[in-house]
């Protein structure tokens, strides 16, 4: 995949993810309602490919305002990834040379890979995750399960054990998928399915839309940096 193609595809998915988040802010309270309207408009311009540098600069300002408003991310990791994708795309546009453009996008590819690997690493060093107890607690104790029916999954320790190890192994092995184009595509499909499961079970819908915004960049990264 060519760099320009990857950036454009990434911008289209990012625009959709930001529009999705903005529509949710618009249903909320002030002042985020107003900022949601502004961001929805900018997302539309980004989707159309209109003046990406200016539009992304505007989106970065809105993101900083919201970060200050909530004294941190509103929606945890999904806000971090949203801002990271946006920042790296913006930097790739204003980079003075192609080298720095590749550094900016390479950083995003690194963070995407690291987001999976680090999540797997912190789980495998935790005895509660290795035994399945931690995932049992996620279902039984935390505020995440979307329904009482979903909470009852905690009553199946064997399922929790299998799910824990499936997630740990996938997350730890994700960086190895960079060695082969088809392995990376397969890994991204599994990763998107994982985010879909998190959205269905824990209501983390914003993660499902924003993580794929970085997928075109990692596909470019794999073809440009790792293979050649």
């Amino acid at each position: 995949m060519l760099l320009e193609q990857a950036v454009r595809y990434s911008e289209i998915i990012l625009a959709f993810a930001y529009a999705q988040q903005s529509l949710e802010y618009i249903r909320g309270l002030q002042p985020e309602k107003t900022w949601g309207v502004i961001r929805l408009f900018l997302s539309f311009l980004l989707l159309m490919g209109f003046q990406p540098v200016l539009v992304e600069a505007g989106l970065l300002i809105v993101s900083c305002v919201l970060l200050y408003r909530f004294q941190g991310p509103y929606n945890g990791g999904s806000d971090c990834m949203s801002m990271l994708v946006l920042l790296c795309l913006f930097l790739s546009h204003i980079a003075p040379t192609e080298f720095w453009q590749q550094i900016a996008l390479g950083y995003l590819a690194f963070q995407l890979t690291f987001s999976y690997f680090q999540s797997g690493y912190i789980k495998i060093i935790n005895a509660d995750w290795r035994s399945g107890q931690a995932l049992t607690d996620v279902f039984a104790i935390t505020a995440y399960p979307v329904s009482e029916h979903a909470r009852r999954w905690a009553q199946s320790p064997r399922l929790m054990f299998v799910m824990s190890w499936s997630v740990i192994v996938f997350e730890l092995l994700f960086p190895l998928s960079l060695l082969n184009h088809y392995a990376l595509i397969a890994a991204l499909v599994i990763a998107a399915t994982f985010h879909l499961a998190n959205a269905c079970l824990f209501g983390l819908n914003r993660f499902f839309w924003i993580w794929p915004a970085a997928y075109p960049i990692i596909l470019w990264f794999q073809s440009r940096i790792v293979v050649t």
Binding site: L23, E24, G28, Y74, A143, V146, S147, H149
Partner: peptide, 27 residues
């Protein structure tokens, strides 16, 4: 939380779930 989330509701929540995300922020 509701007893169960239907498939239709789940699909809609995938696209648009402001109340749940606000609840996560409150948490």
């Amino acid at each position: 939380r509701p007893a169960k989330v239907s498939l239709k509701s789940g699909l809609w929540r995938l696209l648009h779930n402001p109340e749940w995300n606000e609840t996560l922020y409150i948490n």
